Amino acid sequence: KTEWPELVGKSVEEAKKVILQDKPEAQIIVLPVGTIVTMEYRIDRVRLFVDKLDNIAQVPRVG
């Protein structure tokens, strides 16, 4: 699995749990929505963009 659209609106902790069940090797990085990030693709990275309430604001994707 490479993306988790069902996690939008969920808490960071809930999202981490689901992603690590699907992809145990994932390196999860939590960032505020709108953060500028590098464009290199990494198969072991999932970025979680969160709103001010620490809920997932964008679809988490591998990369």
Rank of each mutant, 00 (worst) to 15 (best):
residue 1 K to R: 09
residue 59 V to E: 06
residue 40 E to S: 08
residue 40 E to K: 08
residue 7 L to S: 01
residue 16 K to D: 00
residue 53 L to C: 14
residue 33 V to N: 04
residue 15 A to M: 02
residue 3 E to A: 08
residue 50 V to W: 00
residue 48 L to T: 03
residue 13 E to M: 10
residue 55 N to S: 08
residue 18 V to T: 09
residue 41 Y to V: 12
residue 10 K to P: 01
residue 5 P to K: 03
residue 42 R to C: 13
residue 59 V to I: 11
residue 3 E to W: 05
residue 8 V to L: 13
residue 4 W to G: 02
residue 5 P to A: 03
residue 35 T to P: 07
residue 36 I to G: 15
residue 46 V to L: 07
residue 7 L to W: 00
residue 3 E to S: 12
residue 61 R to T: 12
residue 23 K to F: 15
residue 1 K to E: 06
residue 9 G to I: 00
residue 18 V to Q: 11
residue 56 I to W: 00
residue 62 V to M: 13
residue 24 P to A: 05
residue 49 F to C: 05
residue 24 P to S: 04
residue 55 N to W: 02
residue 31 L to G: 06
residue 15 A to E: 01
residue 58 Q to C: 10
residue 36 I to L: 13
residue 56 I to F: 03
residue 26 A to S: 09
residue 43 I to P: 15
residue 7 L to Q: 03
residue 32 P to R: 10
residue 47 R to D: 13
residue 45 R to E: 15
residue 33 V to P: 08
residue 25 E to C: 08
residue 9 G to D: 02
residue 38 T to V: 06
residue 11 S to I: 04
residue 15 A to V: 03
residue 47 R to M: 15
residue 56 I to D: 00
residue 24 P to E: 04
residue 11 S to V: 03
residue 53 L to S: 15
residue 51 D to A: 00
residue 2 T to H: 09
residue 31 L to N: 09
residue 58 Q to D: 11
residue 54 D to T: 06
residue 30 V to T: 09
residue 18 V to Y: 09
residue 4 W to R: 01
residue 34 G to L: 03
residue 5 P to Q: 04
residue 35 T to S: 13
residue 53 L to N: 15
residue 30 V to F: 01
residue 28 I to L: 10
residue 24 P to D: 03
residue 57 A to Y: 05
residue 5 P to R: 03
residue 25 E to M: 09
residue 14 E to M: 08
residue 46 V to Y: 02
residue 21 Q to W: 07
residue 35 T to A: 13
residue 15 A to G: 10
residue 28 I to Q: 04
residue 41 Y to L: 11
residue 57 A to E: 06
residue 59 V to F: 01
residue 36 I to V: 13
residue 16 K to P: 00
residue 30 V to L: 05
residue 31 L to Y: 10
residue 61 R to H: 10
residue 37 V to N: 14
residue 3 E to V: 07
residue 46 V to H: 01
residue 15 A to W: 01
residue 5 P to E: 04
residue 13 E to R: 10
residue 48 L to S: 03
residue 28 I to W: 03
residue 24 P to N: 01
residue 15 A to Q: 01
residue 21 Q to L: 10
residue 56 I to C: 04
residue 63 G to F: 08
residue 13 E to Y: 09
residue 3 E to I: 08
residue 29 I to K: 12
residue 63 G to S: 14
residue 2 T to P: 02
residue 9 G to Y: 01
residue 27 Q to G: 07
residue 49 F to N: 02
residue 22 D to G: 04
residue 62 V to L: 12
residue 9 G to A: 02
residue 63 G to R: 08
residue 14 E to W: 10
residue 20 L to M: 12
residue 13 E to S: 12
residue 61 R to C: 12
residue 7 L to N: 01
residue 14 E to Y: 13
residue 62 V to C: 10
residue 44 D to N: 12
residue 61 R to P: 00
residue 1 K to H: 04
residue 40 E to L: 05
residue 10 K to L: 10
residue 21 Q to P: 00
residue 60 P to A: 03
residue 16 K to S: 07
residue 16 K to C: 05
residue 38 T to P: 14
residue 19 I to D: 03
residue 27 Q to W: 05
residue 24 P to R: 04
residue 12 V to P: 03
residue 43 I to M: 14
residue 10 K to V: 12
residue 48 L to E: 02
residue 55 N to A: 09
residue 27 Q to F: 06
residue 37 V to T: 14
residue 30 V to D: 02
residue 19 I to S: 01
residue 11 S to D: 07
residue 49 F to I: 11
residue 63 G to E: 12
residue 52 K to F: 09
residue 27 Q to A: 10
residue 29 I to P: 03
residue 19 I to R: 01
residue 20 L to N: 10
residue 17 K to R: 12
residue 61 R to Y: 13
residue 39 M to P: 15
residue 45 R to V: 15
residue 11 S to R: 08
residue 45 R to L: 15
residue 50 V to K: 07
residue 56 I to S: 03
residue 59 V to Q: 00
residue 1 K to A: 04
residue 7 L to K: 00
residue 39 M to Q: 14
residue 56 I to K: 00
residue 42 R to I: 12
residue 25 E to W: 08
residue 31 L to S: 13
residue 61 R to Q: 09
residue 25 E to A: 10
residue 7 L to A: 03
residue 42 R to N: 10
residue 57 A to L: 06
residue 12 V to A: 10
residue 34 G to K: 07
residue 34 G to V: 02
residue 19 I to F: 00
residue 18 V to L: 10
residue 11 S to P: 14
residue 15 A to S: 05
residue 22 D to H: 06
residue 53 L to F: 15
residue 22 D to Q: 09
residue 15 A to R: 01
residue 47 R to N: 15
residue 1 K to L: 04
residue 46 V to N: 01
residue 50 V to M: 03
residue 45 R to D: 15
residue 9 G to N: 04
residue 58 Q to S: 12
residue 59 V to H: 00
residue 60 P to M: 00
residue 59 V to G: 02
residue 40 E to R: 07
residue 38 T to Q: 12
residue 23 K to E: 07
residue 56 I to V: 15
residue 4 W to D: 02
residue 18 V to P: 02
residue 28 I to V: 11
residue 42 R to Y: 08
residue 47 R to I: 15
residue 49 F to H: 04
residue 18 V to E: 06
residue 48 L to W: 01
residue 14 E to F: 13
residue 26 A to Y: 06
residue 28 I to T: 06
residue 52 K to G: 14
residue 15 A to C: 02
residue 48 L to A: 02
residue 29 I to Y: 08
residue 23 K to R: 13
residue 5 P to H: 02
residue 30 V to S: 05
residue 22 D to E: 12
residue 40 E to I: 02
residue 44 D to P: 11
residue 15 A to T: 01
residue 1 K to Q: 12
residue 46 V to R: 02
residue 60 P to D: 00
residue 25 E to D: 14
residue 28 I to N: 03
residue 44 D to I: 00
residue 52 K to I: 09
residue 43 I to W: 13
residue 8 V to E: 02
residue 42 R to T: 14
residue 41 Y to G: 14
residue 37 V to K: 12
residue 47 R to T: 15
residue 16 K to H: 05
residue 61 R to D: 03
residue 17 K to N: 07
residue 37 V to E: 15
residue 27 Q to M: 07
residue 39 M to L: 11
residue 10 K to M: 13
residue 44 D to T: 07
residue 25 E to G: 13
residue 5 P to I: 00
residue 51 D to F: 01
residue 49 F to T: 04
residue 28 I to E: 01
residue 50 V to F: 05
residue 45 R to Y: 15
residue 4 W to M: 02
residue 53 L to I: 09
residue 22 D to L: 03
residue 49 F to S: 04
residue 19 I to M: 02
residue 63 G to Q: 14
residue 36 I to P: 14
residue 33 V to T: 10
residue 40 E to Y: 04
residue 47 R to Q: 14
residue 39 M to N: 15
residue 29 I to N: 08
residue 50 V to Q: 01
residue 47 R to W: 14
residue 34 G to M: 04
residue 58 Q to V: 12
residue 28 I to R: 00
residue 58 Q to Y: 11
residue 53 L to M: 13
residue 54 D to S: 13
residue 52 K to Q: 14
residue 39 M to F: 09
residue 10 K to A: 10
residue 43 I to V: 13
residue 25 E to Y: 07
residue 59 V to D: 00
residue 20 L to K: 11
residue 32 P to C: 04
residue 53 L to H: 14
residue 46 V to F: 05
residue 1 K to S: 06
residue 5 P to L: 03
residue 29 I to L: 12
residue 26 A to R: 04
residue 43 I to R: 13
residue 33 V to C: 06
residue 2 T to V: 10
residue 63 G to Y: 09
residue 5 P to D: 02
residue 17 K to A: 10
residue 9 G to L: 01
residue 57 A to F: 03
residue 53 L to Y: 13
residue 51 D to M: 00
residue 21 Q to S: 11
residue 4 W to Q: 00
residue 34 G to E: 11
